[in-house]
């Protein structure tokens, strides 16, 4: 054992170092047990895996949103807004002609009030 553990640069002191290595100070079992207890006492506690329950907060915006029907209703409102803006932006070219042509009016209303009067209706 001594030869196995001999350091290459022990030099002439090799037998002395060997003897000292063989006489290594050993920790007592009691002290080791205390060190283990300390390690466990100091050990960080693992974080809980469960997700924390979000705190319910109240405010005027949250209440108004709730009365309107919550986020689904807000999504509907937003979609309606977008549709309105889109119609506003696109409509002039598409809708003007349709609204002013006589044929389109007669197509929308085939008989006028005069026609109904003549027919005795």
């Amino acid at each position: 054992m001594m030869t196995d553990r001999k350091m290459s640069d022990d030099g002439p002191l090799a037998p002395w170092f060997d003897a000292a290595r063989d006489d290594a100070p050993l920790a007592s079992g009691d002290w080791l047990a205390r060190m283990e207890a300390m390690a466990l006492a100091e050990q960080p506690v693992p974080r809980a895996v469960s997700r924390p329950v979000p705190e319910r907060r109240s405010g005027w915006l949250r209440e108004a949103l709730g009365q309107l029907g919550g986020w689904p209703a807000m999504a509907g409102l937003a979609a309606a807004c977008v549709a309105g803006v889109w119609l506003g932006a696109v409509a002039p070219s598409d809708w003007t002609g349709m609204g002013t042509t006589d044929s389109l009016i007669s197509a929308a209303e085939p008989a006028s009030a005069y026609d109904y009067a003549m027919l005795g209706l």
Binding site: P25, L26, W31, L32, M35, A39, L40, Q43, P44, P46
Partner: peptide
């Protein structure tokens, strides 16, 4: 937070530190 690691490290390192 692994308790076995606390024991293993203590057994491995405490004797060296003491020595």
């Amino acid at each position: 937070g692994e308790p076995a690691a606390a024991r293993a490290l203590t057994l491995r390192l405490a004797p060296k530190a003491f020595s």
